[in-house]
């Protein structure tokens, strides 16, 4: 699309959990996708489909009973093979900025926003730990996320939901990381606040910033947003990845996905049709358990297009993993 090299390149990423009794739960299976600079990829899916596990795998935050396979290349670094020391010192904050799910819970309640920012600036930019150097840097970081400087001395509980979200975003931006990872950043926010939050995130992705706290800043970022909120995804995303039962079943251009000709995978269609401003009709049935997935297409049991062919697992071909996808924009893509 842009021809730029991807910031994050995920190849065959799989995560499974070893459960007591030798049971294995496949939480993510064989995920392939790229995120480029200046681009937002929204990973959407129902709760429990494995999308948060994918985010945790990228940050190296999986619990002890998890195993991973495949590669997740961030530049030359394979996030899945990196050791904890590398992740802690060079990845989190510096290469990946995390915008958390509930900012109010993410901030330490007894410390002011200024203290949070100054600490993060000192940690990530190596600025000298003197008041004189940290103060302007922290204020610059706050300004970048449109956090009002006169609120810097407030504690997290004194902030409205929108401001807490901005404070968390400011923290995520301090390290000037090339990749922003937003894990359900809009859960529990009301609609106006959702719109505002995603608009701000979008601004950080699309507008290369000149100046900033560090010299030489001003590259575009890549944003991977994990969400179940389709309206938020529509507002922010350039591309959409749909996850169902641990697999990415469709990768699509956001405009084509939400507009014409619409999604190609029957599950994606079902998700969109469930929106209150569309048909408001649920996808019938329940998603399968990740510990007991069928051999064939995991969606077949809920799908009105299912045939005998669906007993075989459909590969992700031409950006959709389905034996009977809806028509694409061009027939050529179907055969690619």
């Amino acid at each position: 699309m842009t021809g730029r090299a991807p910031v994050l390149s995920v190849r065959g990423l799989s995560v499974r959990f070893l459960m007591p009794g030798g049971r294995r739960v496949a939480a993510v299976t064989d995920a392939h996708f790229d995120v480029r600079a200046g681009e937002c990829l929204a990973l959407i899916g129902e709760s429990g489909c494995g999308k948060s596990v994918l985010a945790s795998a990228l940050l190296g935050l999986l619990p002890g009973n998890a195993q991973t396979a495949g590669r997740a290349l961030l530049g030359d670094l394979d996030l899945l093979a990196a050791d904890e020391r590398t992740l802690a010192r060079t990845v989190r904050g510096r290469l990946i900025g995390l915008v958390p799910q509930s900012p109010a819970a993410h901030l330490t309640p007894v410390r002011t926003i200024r203290a949070h920012l100054e600490e993060t600036v000192a940690q990530l930019t190596g600025a000298r730990r003197t008041r004189g150097a940290l103060r302007p840097a922290a204020e610059a970081a706050a300004e970048r996320a449109a956090f009002p400087v006169d609120h810097l001395d407030h504690h997290p509980h004194q902030l409205s939901g929108g401001l807490a979200q901005r404070a968390a975003t400011a923290l995520a931006l301090v390290g000037d990381a090339p990749l922003l990872l937003a894990d359900e950043p809009t859960t529990g926010l009301d609609r106006d606040l959702v719109d505002r939050t995603v608009d701000e995130l979008r601004r950080h992705v699309h507008q290369p910033e000149g100046g900033g706290a560090r010299s030489g800043g001003g590259r575009a970022r890549a944003l991977l947003m994990i969400t179940h909120d389709l309206a938020a995804a529509e507002r922010i995303a350039d591309r959409i990845a749909v996850m169902y039962a641990a697999r990415i079943v469709e990768l699509a251009d956001a405009a084509a996905f939400f507009g014409a000709p619409g999604p190609r995978h029957p599950y994606s269609r079902g998700l969109l049709d469930a929106l209150p401003d569309r048909a408001f009709a649920p996808v019938p049935g329940l998603p399968p358990e990740l510990g007991a997935l069928p051999d064939g297409c995991a969606f077949a049991a809920r799908c009105d297009r299912a045939t005998d062919a669906c007993a075989v697992l459909p590969p992700l071909r031409a950006h959709v993993a389905c034996h009977h996808p809806h028509a694409a924009l061009t027939e050529a893509a179907d055969r690619a």
Binding site: R16, G64, Q67, T68, A69, L80
Partner: peptide, 9 residues
């Protein structure tokens, strides 16, 4: 060729 890795045991 699937190589499973685990961490934090």
């Amino acid at each position: 060729g699937t190589v499973w890795r685990s961490r934090g045991g």
